[in-house]
Design a protein around this nucleic acid. Structure first.
Lengths: 188, 188
DNA sequence: TAAATATGTAAGTTACTACTAACATACATA
DNA sequence: TATGTATGTTAGTAGTAACTTACATATTTA
């Protein structure tokens, strides 16, 4: 019965449904809390959302990228990162879509600007991996390539639901994408 | 001084700035037209926007995909399609971002749902191309791959502005992406 | 137990916005 | 010239939403 948790869950639910346009009334209702409580705690609607989203972003999308980057085999590294991030993003598809939508509108501050966060995190991972290998690559290009893969599964219509694939199938899909990225790296 | 054109331009300007949340007042101001004129012509704000956007979408994003698909060499076909669509999308980046944002929110009807439009148009192009070549490929997968490339340039931050590349540089970039896609096709 | 703190209720303020109505004016056409 | 049509101006309606205030009640803490 932690009020804070109630508010967080309510805010996220409302946010997923309507984005930042969700009214404080709706948030209060979802949370089972008085509207004025939200204002006493967070002062403004905007502050409420950014506070909540910042925390959720860390919790749900907390980056394992740097850890994965330690893998020495590049194809394996790419496969792992694709598999890992794709799983997280697709699992939280509705939330991700709202975050993207609001980011595109410029409503979200830097720390919760999802494209920014995704891109820079991937870039760091790539830099880390290839530094280990003493290999020079255009990390911007490959971060973009990876980011594009993730975006495509979240934004483009997907009939053959990623969710419904078995672990094995997902791994193969990730590997396929990894090879595609790798092919351009080896070009250099 | 065509009023219709004024209204279209004003509506698009307002839409780019604020999305469907743009008020009719703002549209009227941008267009240099009385607010009530909008209602007399389009009845509702929603109708105004969908009418305007549908037309703009056709005019600016009119698909050359099928034409390009006739190219017999697959690498060339991919390079051409990537170069062509990337140019159009990046040139209209602000508009595209708003369209994506609204599509993600589910505010736009089918005909102007940009992810849908992009994906299905790419898919058709791929099917057309490979049918000519009597080759069987997973067009869903490759349409997704191409779509991901486009999305990455519109959504992800890009410091080395695509806009500022020369024609030659763009072509090389497109070719690089094309080869990446091709590498997974040849896997089969 | 007493005081401080967190919450709920209810009402209100202010500002915005989609949309309408009434009337006036400009312009083209018959 | 007379009439219809497109537009502008102004005012208004009704609904919504962010945020505030005042007061009552519950819960925690000292």
């Amino acid at each position: 019965m932690d009020k804070t948790e109630q508010i967080f869950k309510g805010a996220i639910a409302a946010f997923i449904k309507k984005g930042m346009q969700a009214s404080t009334q709706e948030v209060a209702k979802e949370a089972g809390v008085a509207e004025v409580t939200l204002y006493r705690r967070y002062s403004t609607k905007e502050n409420l959302f950014t506070t909540v989203l910042k925390q959720v972003l860390e919790k749900k999308f907390g980056s394992r990228v740097l850890e994965i980057a330690k893998e020495n085999d590049t194809e394996l590294f790419l496969t792992n990162i694709i598999e890992d991030r794709l799983e997280v993003l697709v699992k939280n598809k509705d939330l991700v879509r709202m975050l993207l939508s609001e980011s595109l509108r410029g409503n979200l501050t830097e720390k919760i600007n999802l494209p920014e966060v995704i891109f820079s995190s991937l870039k760091k991972g790539l830099e880390c991996h290839f530094q280990h290998k003493n290999q020079q690559v255009d990390s911007d290009f490959y971060a973009r390539q990876l980011g594009g893969i993730f975006l495509s599964y979240v934004i483009l219509p997907n009939d053959q639901q990623f969710d419904k694939l078995t672990g094995q199938e997902r791994r193969e899909l990730a590997k396929k994408h990894a090879k595609s990225v790798l092919s351009t790296i080896e070009e250099i």
